[in-house]
Simulated scan of single mutants.
Amino acid sequence: MFKDRIDAALQLAEKLKAFKGKDVVVLAIPKGGLPLGVIIAKTLNAPLDVVLSKKIGHPFNKEYAIGAVSLENMVINEHLDIPEKYIAEETQNIRKKLQKRYDLYHKGRPPIALQGKNIIIVDDGVATGNTLKVTAELVHGQHPKKTIVAIPVAPLGAIQNLEGSNFIDKVICLETPHNFRAVGQFYSNFEQVSEEEAIELLEELNGVPDH
């Protein structure tokens, strides 16, 4: 159990100290991953950016990810028999939303280049790992040196799912409880992070000069 995201971030940052000075970029999943991303980036003296992608839900169960979309890439589970028209329409709708979020988070600032870097993708926890898995595949398209996923809590099945990815080199997770129902149950305080708060966190860290 974590007190809040700050507590989780401090514990996770301890586990990541070996990456300090190793050409790291921290990528946070908005919005809940940003409070952790800021602390981890400060600890590692690394730049922080967000990774903007969104799952495509199954036509009959929107919670079930059949793939994911970023502004540049798309990953679809090929073995599923989903109409191309549905995928095209969902992709278009998602990209409109992502473009709005991109403009909010970057405000004219280009995203940090990931090629040849050690990428640490951070979130406040995962339930299935599916969305994070396809996010890692999208990041892989930018040719990082290594991709590490760092999360405070997830069920064992999600960790195995992430470790089975060809696009994730290492998974660091603090807790893998058996009685997992939702990420929030393992935080005393799990208040929603607003878009405004998330943007402020990103700007706060990017306002700090590199050391």
Score class of each variant (00 low, 15 high):
Ile121Cys: 07
Thr147Phe: 08
Pro155Gly: 03
Ile87Phe: 09
Ala150Phe: 00
Val139Ser: 01
Asn73Phe: 05
Gln142Phe: 15
Leu104Glu: 09
His140Tyr: 15
Tyr86Glu: 13
Lys133Tyr: 01
Tyr86Arg: 13
Asn118Ser: 04
Pro152Cys: 05
Thr131Val: 11
Ala136Phe: 07
Ile94Trp: 02
Leu114Asp: 06
Glu89Ala: 09
His79Asp: 15
Leu80His: 10
Leu104Pro: 06
Lys96Met: 01
Ile76Phe: 13
Lys100Cys: 10
Gly129Tyr: 09
Lys85Tyr: 02
Ile119Ala: 07
Lys85Phe: 04
Lys133Thr: 05
Ala113Leu: 14
Lys85Arg: 13
Pro152Leu: 00
His79Gln: 14
Ile94Gly: 01
Gln92Cys: 15
Leu132Asn: 05
Gly129Thr: 04
Thr128Gly: 05
Ala136Val: 08
Ile112Pro: 00
Lys96Asn: 12
Ile82Gln: 06
Asp123Arg: 05
Thr147Val: 13
His140Thr: 08
Lys133Ile: 00
Ala136Trp: 03
Gly125Cys: 06
Leu138Glu: 04
Pro152Ala: 05
Ala88Pro: 14
Gly125Asn: 12
Ala158Asn: 07
Lys96Leu: 07
Asp124Val: 03
Leu138Gly: 02
Glu72Ile: 02
Gln92Lys: 15
Lys146Val: 05
Pro152Phe: 04
Glu137Met: 08
Ala88Cys: 15
Tyr86Trp: 07
Gly141Ile: 00
His140Pro: 10
Leu71Ser: 14
Leu104Thr: 05
Ala154Tyr: 05
Ile112Cys: 10
Tyr86Cys: 14
Lys107His: 09
Leu71Asp: 13
Ile148Lys: 02
Lys85Thr: 08
Ile94His: 00
Ala136Gln: 07
Val126Ile: 01
Leu132Pro: 05
Thr131Arg: 01
Ser70Val: 07
Asp123Gln: 02
Glu89Ile: 12
Asp81His: 10
Ala154Ser: 09
Ala113Glu: 12
Glu137Val: 08
His143Trp: 13
Thr131Asp: 06
Lys117Thr: 12
Val75Ala: 13
Asp81Trp: 11
Glu78Gly: 01
Lys107Gly: 10
Asp123His: 04
Ile148Phe: 03
Pro110Gln: 02
Ala154Asn: 00
Val153Leu: 01
Ala136Asp: 09
His79Val: 12
His143Ala: 12
Leu114Glu: 14
Asp124Cys: 10
Ala88Gly: 15
Lys85Ser: 09
Ile151Ser: 02
Gly141Arg: 15
Asn77Pro: 03
Pro152Val: 00
Thr91Leu: 04
Ala127Pro: 00
Ile76Trp: 11
Asp123Gly: 03
Tyr102Arg: 12
Lys85Val: 02
Asn77Cys: 14
Leu98Phe: 00
Leu98Val: 00
Val139Gly: 02
Ala127Ser: 11
Pro111Glu: 14
Val134Cys: 01
Ala88Leu: 12
Gly141Pro: 00
Ala127Val: 01
